[in-house]
């Protein structure tokens, strides 16, 4: 396989494969999770309340409503920013949209390149903050494992390589390949690693929110 066909492959079939693995894996794991709950602790379903699940999820999505977030405004600001940009930047990046347009004829609004560049830098700074915190804050350091760093690095690589590729700082081709591959790796890993927290978060919140709200008549934020 020469360089060209390899690039075609990772930017063509591999993108599709990654999305398929991501979507199928996510559906599979979610399905398995519900089957597992049903098999081992199906009482959970009898406590789930739609109203209190929603109440808890919405409360925790509202910036600075939870007392926890008011106690750590700096951390939560960074975490919120990081999590929002994680979706915004790749989805609304012009060069990503162009690709979709080329292959699938889909397109949607984009952010301009300068803003995207700044937002990318912000994401990278956020991940730097997460790493630093794991080294510096003693209660975080105490429970940190090596995999936590790997996890943050995997999440930041698409952004770091994307930034380098955009500025064509060095070895453009290699960086570009690294960028595409790191993005695909992250997508593929989501269903099989702790990245899956994005899908489990609302489930645990719903249960905790229902127990607190529906059974115990208390708030959980």
């Amino acid at each position: 396989m020469n360089m060209h066909t390899f690039i075609d492959f990772i930017m063509g079939e591999m993108v599709i494969v990654s999305f398929v693995i991501f979507i199928a894996g996510t559906c599979g794991r979610l399905l398995w999770t519900f089957i597992h709950i049903n098999k081992t602790e199906n009482f959970i379903f009898s406590y789930l309340s739609f109203k209190y699940s929603l109440r808890s999820i919405l409360a925790w999505l509202t910036p600075f409503l939870p007392v926890s977030s008011r106690k750590k405004p700096f951390f939560y600001s960074i975490s919120y920013t990081f999590h929002i940009l994680l979706f915004i930047v790749p989805i609304f990046l012009l060069s990503h949209i162009t690709l979709f347009e080329e292959y699938l004829n889909w397109s949607w609004i984009s952010i301009n390149d300068t803003s995207a560049d700044i937002l990318t830098i912000i994401v990278i700074l956020c991940t730097l903050f997460f790493v630093t915190r794991r080294v510096v804050v003693k209660e975080v350091k105490y429970i940190t494992r090596t995999s936590d760093f790997v996890f943050i690095i995997i999440a930041s690589l698409p952004f770091i390589t994307g930034f380098l590729a955009y500025h064509q700082l060095f070895a453009y081709k290699i960086i570009m390949i690294a960028h595409v591959i790191s993005g695909e790796i992250m997508l593929i890993l989501i269903p099989f690693t702790r990245f899956f927290h994005m899908f489990i978060a609302p489930i645990i919140r719903a249960y905790t929110g229902s127990e607190f709200g529906n059974v115990r008549g208390a708030k959980d934020w």
Binding site: E41, F196, I200
Partner: peptide, 26 residues
């Protein structure tokens, strides 16, 4: 004696230690 709950808690904890400030022992 354990099931989905424990697995979800363990797999999902991001080890962020935001829970620390809640605990009066801490």
């Amino acid at each position: 004696e354990t099931g989905a709950r424990l697995k979800l808690y363990i797999d999902t904890c991001m080890r962020c230690s935001l829970c620390a400030d809640a605990c009066s022992f801490f």
